[in-house]
Computed example of a mutant assay.
Amino acid sequence: MFFVRTASERDLEKVSALLAETWHASYDSFYGADKVNELTAKWHSVDALRARLQRKNSEFVVADNGREIAGMAYAAMSDKLEKTVVLHQLYVLPRYQRHGIGRDMFAELESCFPDAERMRLEVEPQNLHALAFYRAHGFVEVARTANCGDDQSGIPALILEKLLH
């Protein structure tokens, strides 16, 4: 059984490896392994994860069974949008998907931001499993972007939102 807990410095190597595995499983068919390697090196390095772990007004959780980490999620209050929390990452290892781990991490993050009125995220339009997950949890499309994650990624995304209250 996996328990959701706040991530710590000692988890970062495992989380980085988890992100590399889940990104290759999710995105190689869309972008190719080289692009996934490039983005993973930039966004999912231990240093990048450490910066997220240390950010104020954020929550970084993992699903842990005492032997391994099966999932991770990270959300932070928006610097640009008032009363909006941004779900930056929610990933579960492929072999543990559809076991409620994503749901449990998502529920934990929803409760961590009492002042937020909405949650927002970006999702790859071709990632039908992620879209189905988020829609099942009450998200609706509100916009689109040509640069998911940062201004230079060149990766299109749907922007989804959910009211929290």
Rank of each mutant, 00 (worst) to 15 (best):
Q126R: 14
A76F: 00
S111Q: 12
K42G: 04
M105S: 04
A132N: 14
P125A: 03
A17S: 14
T6Y: 01
Y96L: 00
V85S: 06
P156H: 03
I101V: 14
G100P: 06
W43H: 09
L87E: 02
D115A: 12
A132I: 06
A70C: 03
P94G: 10
M1H: 11
Y134C: 04
L163S: 12
A7H: 07
V62H: 07
Q126W: 07
S26N: 15
A107E: 14
Y91H: 11
R50L: 10
R5C: 01
E38D: 14
R98A: 07
L164F: 02
C148T: 00
V142Q: 06
W43N: 07
R10I: 10
A17F: 09
H88L: 00
L12D: 06
A76T: 01
L109D: 04
P94H: 09
I69Y: 09
R95L: 09
Q97N: 06
E141T: 13
T84Q: 10
V61Q: 12
L81R: 14
K35M: 13
L53R: 05
R120F: 07
D28F: 09
K14R: 15
H129M: 13
M72A: 15
Y91N: 05
A116K: 11
I159M: 01
E21N: 12
E108Y: 06
D115E: 14
D150H: 10
Y91L: 06
C112E: 10
L131Q: 04
R103N: 10
F139T: 01
E21M: 08
W43E: 02
A132E: 15
A130C: 09
G100S: 00
L160I: 06
R120T: 03
D150Y: 08
P156V: 02
S45H: 11
K83A: 10
N37W: 07
E108W: 02
H129E: 15
E38T: 13
G154V: 04
A51M: 09
E13V: 07
E13Y: 00
A41M: 05
Q152C: 01
E141L: 02
A41K: 14
E161H: 06
V46I: 13
I159P: 05
G149D: 05
T145E: 08
K14S: 13
D47K: 14
F133W: 06
V15T: 08
V85K: 01
I69S: 11
S153M: 04
H129T: 15
L49R: 08
S26P: 08
A146L: 11
T145G: 08
D64G: 05
F3A: 09
T6K: 13
T145K: 05
D34N: 11
A48C: 10
R135L: 00
Y91R: 10
V62R: 08
P94V: 08
M119K: 00
L12S: 04
H88V: 00
